[in-house]
Amino acid sequence: VGDQVLEIVPSNEEQIKNLLQLEAQEHLQLDFWKSPTTPGETAHVRVPFVNVQAVKVFLESQGIAYSIMIED
């Protein structure tokens, strides 16, 4: 199991704000291929294997929908 690319769908401005804060966490080494800008629009982010669980827990705790787009 390696890195994953998640497709994330924020449903409101609050969730977009939370994702932008997540993007700013440099220690997570997230690679946003497509940043969140509009509710209902997908964002794509590559998550290093060591941080996959932490990111998924965060998304679930914020009620942000996501799916695994690419499993490496």
Rank of each mutant, 00 (worst) to 15 (best):
K56H: 05
Q62Y: 14
E7C: 15
G2N: 11
W33H: 08
N18P: 02
W33K: 10
L20F: 10
E60V: 05
T38M: 10
F49D: 07
N51V: 08
L6C: 02
E26R: 12
V55A: 02
Y66A: 01
L20D: 03
Q62G: 05
I8T: 01
T37V: 07
R46T: 06
P48L: 04
S67F: 08
E14A: 09
N12R: 02
I16V: 10
I8H: 00
P48I: 04
V5K: 04
V45A: 05
M69G: 04
V57Y: 12
P48K: 07
A43R: 03
P39S: 04
E60L: 04
Q62V: 12
Q15V: 02
V55R: 00
N51M: 08
V5M: 11
D31Q: 15
T42C: 10
G63N: 08
P36I: 07
N12K: 02
K56F: 07
E41K: 05
N51R: 04
D3T: 11
N18L: 15
K56S: 04
W33T: 15
H44A: 07
V47L: 03
N18W: 15
Y66G: 01
F49E: 12
A43M: 13
V1W: 12
A43W: 15
S11Y: 09
E71P: 09
V9Y: 15
I64H: 00
L6R: 00
V1G: 13
F58T: 03
I68Y: 05
I64W: 01
K34Y: 06
S35G: 11
L28P: 04
V57G: 10
I70Y: 14
R46N: 05
Q29P: 04
L28R: 02
N18T: 15
P48S: 07
Q15G: 03
V1D: 12
S67C: 12
L20Y: 08
E7I: 13
T42Y: 05
E71C: 15
N12S: 08
L59N: 00
G2Y: 13
Q53L: 10
L19Y: 01
V47N: 01
V9L: 11
L28I: 07
P39G: 04
S61W: 05
D31A: 10
I70H: 11
A54P: 04
V52E: 03
T37H: 06
L19D: 00
V45Q: 01
G40N: 06
G2S: 08
E71L: 06
E7H: 15
D3L: 08
L22P: 03
R46I: 08
E26F: 15
I70T: 11
E71N: 12
A54G: 04
F58S: 02
V1M: 10
G40E: 03
Q25T: 11
D3V: 11
P10G: 03
E23W: 14
S67V: 08
L59T: 00
P48D: 05
L19Q: 00
H44Q: 13
D72R: 07
N12I: 02
E14Y: 07
P36T: 06
G2K: 05
T38R: 07
I64C: 01
F32V: 04
L19N: 00
F32L: 02
F58E: 03
P48G: 05
Q15R: 00
F32D: 02
D3G: 14
E26Y: 14
I68S: 04
E71H: 07
F49R: 07
L6I: 07
E26Q: 12
T37M: 12
V57P: 00
S11A: 13
I8K: 01
K34W: 10
G63H: 06
Q62N: 14
N51T: 05
V50H: 14
Q53G: 07
Q29F: 10
S61Q: 12
S67R: 09
I64M: 06
N18H: 13
I8A: 02
L30I: 10
Q53S: 10
S35I: 14
A65G: 07
Q53T: 08
T42W: 04
I8S: 00
I8F: 04
Q29S: 10
F58H: 04
D3H: 14
Y66I: 01
V50Q: 13
V9A: 06
L28W: 13
I64L: 04
E71D: 13
T42H: 09
I16K: 02
K34H: 09
A54F: 13
A65K: 14
V9R: 12
L22Y: 06
W33Y: 14
Q25V: 09
E41M: 08
P10Q: 01
T37E: 06
V9I: 11
G40T: 03
N12W: 02
T42K: 11
V47H: 00
K17V: 07
V1F: 11
E41W: 10
F49G: 14
Q15C: 02
D31W: 12
T38W: 07
A65N: 10
V57D: 15
P36S: 05
E23H: 12
L28V: 04
L22A: 04
A54Y: 15
E71T: 10
T37I: 09
E41D: 08
N51C: 08
K17I: 09
N51W: 13
Q15H: 07
I70A: 11
I8C: 05
F58L: 05
Q4K: 06
F58G: 01
W33N: 06
N51H: 14
G2M: 11
I64Q: 00
G2C: 15
G2H: 11
I68P: 04
K56L: 14
D72F: 15
L28D: 02
G40C: 08
V52T: 06
I70C: 15
L6Y: 05
F32I: 04
V45W: 02
L30A: 03
G2R: 04
N18Q: 14
V45D: 00
L20K: 12
P36F: 04
Q25K: 11
Q29L: 08
I64F: 04
Q53M: 11
E14Q: 08
N12V: 01
N18I: 15
S67I: 12
H27G: 10
E26P: 07
I70K: 09
L30T: 03
V50E: 14
A54L: 12
E7W: 10
V52F: 11
A65L: 09
Q21E: 12
V5F: 10
V55Q: 00
Q62M: 14
D3M: 15
A43C: 15
Q25R: 08
H27Y: 11
P48N: 06
S11W: 08
V9E: 04
Y66L: 01
V50I: 12
V52C: 05
D72P: 10
A54C: 08
I70Q: 10
P39D: 02
G63W: 03
W33C: 15
Q25M: 14
A43T: 13
V50G: 10
E71R: 04
W33P: 04
P39F: 04
Q25F: 12
Q25E: 08
Q62K: 13
F49T: 10
H44L: 15
Y66W: 07
L20H: 06
L59D: 00
Q15E: 05
G40F: 08
N12L: 02
V57A: 12
L20N: 06
S35K: 14
D31S: 11
V5D: 04
V9D: 03
H27K: 08
D3K: 06
V52A: 06
D72K: 12
S35H: 11
G40D: 03
V47Y: 01
L30C: 05
L6W: 10
K34A: 07
D72E: 14
L30H: 01
I68E: 06
L6N: 00
Q53I: 12
P39E: 03
L20C: 06
Y66V: 02
E23D: 08
K17H: 09
S35C: 14
L6H: 00
G40P: 01
D3N: 09
V9W: 14
N51F: 13
E41T: 07
K34F: 06
V45C: 06
E60M: 06
K56A: 06
I16L: 12
V1L: 09
D31V: 15
E14M: 08
